[in-house]
Design a protein around this nucleic acid. Structure first.
Lengths: 136, 136
DNA sequence: CGGCAGCTTGACGTTTACGTTAAGGTAAGC
DNA sequence: GCTTACCTTAACGTAAACGTCAAGCTGCCG
């Protein structure tokens, strides 16, 4: 029943971050590993949260934002007030993400356009070179 | 023929940033406004670049990355070497953006899932409340 | 018991992306 | 000529997200 645990170094190695990073995340409430004496003991739940955090980072969100998102998954059991608040939060995060997605689409479209123009120019240069008998 | 110009304050107001930000962007090569004496004079090209920069920021890219992208649009005229280098860069940026897009899709999917579970819980709580004769 | 590997908590250093004075130039209006 | 509004550079301050020591526990091996 998913009882395996990890040390800080193991988790760091596996996820490609440093131990310092994991301690930092704990210090700021993004992770809550168990403690055995002083030692940290990470469970599978911490792995899930860590994945969320790292994905958030890839998306360029500040840790404060990420913390809210992680908190949403943790607090998904509650009474009516909590649930409606959570639903509101979901709406907020979703619209942020959709804004980002549309920014990405736009940029990808412009890149495609730029690429097309580049290829056209290359062809033109190529044929001009050919006209002059230059090797490509 | 698009000859209108803007002062630093006008541009700042319009794009919702401070003048300090625009000076900072110039200092780091993201913008190159004309100079009349000491004064900066912004043209429509600067507006286009600024839009690129701000979109990059919304996407959470560091300014160094953004600088490269902006530079790509500036340097789209050149000889063969430049063009193939630019095409390589386009490939790099595109794969970055596609990675991000897939991260976003994943997160949106998880949010949708979370939302569904929330709504289910709400319904359950609602009917439980109704069973006890409690107003919703 | 010594020693090492791996963990711990501070605490200060670093980079990024500006904010915030400070100190002064400039053109327009009265 | 003086004020006012807007601009300039220079320089120091700041928050975020760790990196980088320093100094000390902890468990095990020989």
């Amino acid at each position: 029943m998913d009882t395996r645990t990890w040390t800080i170094a193991e988790l760091a190695r596996e996820f490609g971050v440093t131990a310092r990073t994991l301690r930092f995340y704990e210090e700021h409430g993004l992770l809550q590993p168990e403690r055995r004496g002083l030692q940290r003991v990470f469970h599978s739940g911490d792995r899930v949260r860590l994945e969320l955090v790292l994905r958030g980072k890839r998306l360029g969100f500040p840790l404060e934002e990420i913390k809210k998102i992680v908190g949403m998954y943790d607090a998904d059991t509650g009474e009516t007030g909590q649930l409606t608040y959570l639903l509101d939060q979901i709406t907020v995060r979703r619209s942020e993400l959709e804004q980002r997605r549309s920014d990405i689409e736009r940029t990808l479209a412009e890149l495609a356009d730029l690429e097309r123009r580049c290829r056209d120019d290359l062809v033109r240069l190529g044929s001009a070179a050919a006209d002059q008998g230059v090797r490509t």
